[in-house]
Design a protein around this nucleic acid. Structure first.
Length: 425
RNA sequence: GGAGAGAUGGCAGAGCGGCUGAAUGCGGUGGUUUUGAAAACCAUUGUACUGCAAGGUACCGGGGGUUCGAAUCCCUCUCUCUCCGCCA
């Protein structure tokens, strides 16, 4: 959620920022509603003060044995008026909040302005595309051939968008998870969390999935809980409502979780194989940090994701998303896309974003800049480190051999316990 | 899932429907004393919104109600603890 005080101070800045995201917002109407809320607030509060004073006087009078019947009636009326004014205030305020929750985070000034993914900017490329002296296969051919991913029985169990990893396929997935976690925890100082996969609507609102994107979530209606679409939700909300000390920052958390996404409306688009699943695994990085350093921290976090790819020897590029393609809560996003030789496409394996105080305001995540000082909102960052299915794709397709086997990259071998995946291994 | 008990400030723990934003203790901060420390003593010590200010309003798990007036009474939800059942 954006800061109302800032909106009052500089409405044009917000109108422009939303315009860059392709959103035309009547900021004046918003401000009018805001001042209406504040007018009702002062009015109801002074009425309430009057009523409180009247009640107090009655207490005193009763003690002195004076007649209080008339005063009582007067106080009752005051109380009713105050109640009514406060109800009006509450209605208007909810209306305002509902609207505010629907507006995205303004992008940082330096984010390239653009309409959609075609306007994203490639900021860097690492490595080069693997070369083959045979026609490389796509993972959807390679993996079933090796009997390590079972597409058919996955769909049979749960419908399209679900697969079964089998044998060394399951192990490869797990090896990648362990490699990611171990590197992040032991080298880059992340604290690993094991978090709930079902969360409350409040948590979903804290990170911005609700109220706007509920149709992308799996919901357990009997219990009013949602399946997480990413570990970002429980991890960012882990310390919601708390006030942290400056020395504790930055906090770096990582968590491995399955992720659940309905992908409503995305059916049929690039859905072959395991690039887009209703359920997939992901290791996530989340930072809580101070506003002064958050932009720098974003680059640091991105470099951690890059390191993971580099050690796997996977060719990738970095995209800076344009204003039109940046996610709802994010103020700047870098996507890491890994090269998939079998499909001849770039696959997004990590999305590293800075949310400024947008999520922190919703989740009430604050810190005290120094002892005794007033609490400030933290800045939150998150990035994938990394998404599993697409990492699996890149490893399989990049390291495939002419005979249909797959060589295991060196860094993964300790986690795999073998050097290759072949038909009869 | 069944039965019972509970939820109060950083923590512990009081709190007859009005004088309770809340006793008391611990902790924190400042000071006195001391060569220094400890101890002792004194003072101070929640958050948010609103106002130039004085001040005002809200908050005793959440929501609703009764009342002129609710931490205190009623309803409801959530969570915690104990016992029983079930269970990886």
């Amino acid at each position: 959620m954006i800061d109302l005080t800032q909106l009052r101070a500089d409405p044009k800045r917000f109108a422009d920022a939303w315009q860059c995201r392709g959103l035309s917002v009547d900021v004046d109407a918003l401000l009018a509603l805001d001042s209406e809320v504040r007018r009702l607030k002062t009015e109801s509060e002074s009425k309430r003060a009057e009523a409180n004073a009247a009640s107090k006087a009655i207490g005193k009078a009763a003690k002195e044995g004076r007649d209080i019947n008339e005063a009582r009636e007067h106080a009752r009326l005051l109380g009713e008026e105050a109640k009514q004014l406060d109800a009006d205030r509450s209605d208007k305020e909810n209306e305002l909040t509902d609207q505010l929750l629907g507006f995205p985070n303004p992008c940082l000034e330096s984010v390239p302005v653009g309409k959609d993914e075609n306007d994203n900017r490639v900021v860097d490329t690492w490595g080069s595309a693997a070369e083959f002296d045979f026609a490389p296969q796509a993972h959807w051919d390679l993996a079933p051939e090796l009997d390590i991913i079972d597409f058919e029985r996955g769909s049979q169990l749960s419908g399209s968008g679900f697969v079964v990893y089998k044998g060394l396929g399951a192990r490869l997935n797990r090896a990648l998870i362990n490699y990611f976690l171990q590197t992040l925890v032991e080298e880059f100082n992340y604290t690993e969390l094991g978090v709930p996969l079902l969360v409350s609507p409040e948590a979903m609102q804290g990170t911005g999935q609700l109220p706007k994107f509920g149709d992308q979530l799996y919901k357990c209606t009997d219990d009013d809980l949602y399946l997480i679409p990413t570990a970002e939700v429980p991890v960012t909300n882990y310390l919601a409502g708390e006030i942290l000390e400056a020395e504790q920052l930055p906090m770096q958390f990582t968590a491995y979780t399955p992720c659940f996404r309905r992908e409503a409306g995305a059916a049929g688009v690039g859905t072959r194989g395991i690039t887009r699943m209703h359920q997939f695994d992901k290791v996530e990085m989340v930072w809580l940090t101070q506003p002064e350093r958050s932009e720098q921290d974003l680059l640091t976090m991105r470099s951690h994701a890059e390191t993971l790819l580099q050690r796997l020897g996977l060719h990738y590029r970095i995209l800076e998303l344009c204003t039109g393609d940046t996610g709802f809560s994010s103020a700047r996003t870098y996507d890491l896309e890994v090269w998939s030789p079998g499909t001849g496409t770039w696959l997004e394996v990590s999305s590293c974003s800075i949310f400024t105080d947008f999520q922190a305001r919703r989740a009430k995540l604050r810190y005290r800049p120094e002892a005794g000082a007033k609490p400030n909102l933290v800045h939150t960052l998150n990035g994938s480190g990394l998404a599993l299915p697409r990492s699996v794709i890149a490893v399989l397709e990049t390291y495939q051999q002419a005979d249909g086997s797959v060589r295991i990259p060196d860094v993964l071998q300790p986690f795999m316990g073998c050097e290759q995946i072949s038909k009869h291994s």
